[in-house]
C-alpha cells in the first residue's frame, strides 16, 4: 500500500488522468478525440501507431492515448496498459459483421491485469448512421452484464460525426475516475 498511496498523492497534486482509447479499426477513435478537442475531423487517416492528446476537462488534465486499431498493430496495445485510469472501448455500431471480433478483443482486454482497476466506458459510436445498433443492443452483443462485478463500466451511444453523446460519456468517465482516485477532494 505504500507505493499506491504515493502514486495517489502525486496524482492528486497534478490531477492527471490517463485514458486509453482502443477498439477495432474503423470504429472512430481518432475522430472522437479530435471532435472532443474541437479540431477538424474531415481528414483523418487510419492511425498508424498512436496519438496523444492532452486536454483540460473540468479541473482535471486528461492524457488521452488514442491507439491504432488495425489488426496488424493490435498486439501493441498492451504496451499502453500501464497506469491507465480509464479505458474507452469504441464500437462501430453499424459494423454488424465484425461484432464477434469486437467482443473477442474486448474480452481479451478485460482479462488484462494491468487494466483491472480502470473504469470502462464503451462508446457505441456512429449512432447517426441509419441501421446502427442501439447502445442496449451493443451491450447485449458484447454481453457486458456478465462482466466482473468489481469493474466500473458504462455504455453510451454517441456520434463522433455530430458530437452527440461524447461529453456525456467523458463526464461519466472523469467523474468515476475522480471518485476513485481523488476521493478525498
Amino acid at each position: 500500500m505504500g507505493l499506491l498511496s504515493i502514486i495517489r498523492k502525486i496524482k492528486r497534486k497534478e490531477k492527471e488522468m490517463r485514458i486509453l482509447m482502443v477498439g477495432l479499426d474503423n470504429s472512430g477513435k481518432t475522430t472522437i478525440v479530435l471532435k472532443i478537442n474541437g479540431e477538424d475531423t474531415s481528414v483523418i487517416s487510419p492511425t498508424l501507431g498512436f496519438n496523444i492528446k492532452t486536454m483540460t476537462y473540468d479541473k482535471y488534465t486528461l492524457n488521452i492515448w488514442d491507439v491504432g486499431g488495425q489488426k496488424t498493430i493490435r498486439s501493441y496495445w498492451r504496451n499502453y496498459f500501464e497506469q491507465t485510469d480509464g479505458l474507452v472501448w469504441v464500437v462501430d455500431s453499424s459494423d454488424l459483421r465484425r461484432l464477434d471480433d469486437c467482443k473477442f478483443e474486448l474480452d481479451n482486454l478485460l482479462k488484462e491485469e494491468r487494466l483491472s482497476g480502470a473504469s470502462l466506458l464503451v462508446f457505441a459510436n456512429k449512432q447517426d448512421i441509419q441501421g446502427a445498433l442501439s447502445p442496449d443492443e451493443i451491450a447485449k452483443v458484447l454481453n457486458l452484464d456478465a462482466m466482473d462485478k468489481t469493474r466500473h463500466w458504462r455504455i453510451v451511444g454517441c456520434s463522433a460525426y455530430t458530437g452527440e453523446g461524447l461529453l456525456e460519456g467523458f463526464d461519466w468517465l472523469v467523474q468515476d475516475i475522480a471518485s476513485r482516485i481523488y476521493v478525498l477532494d
Partner: peptide
Amino acid sequence: SHQIRIHHAKESDFYLRCRSRPIIEQ
C-alpha cells in the same frame, strides 16, 4: 470515400478518391 481500409486483398485494382490515406493490410 473519406476513409478506405483494405484487408486480405489479392490481385485487385482500386480506383479511388479518398480524403485521407488509404491503407492495406495482409
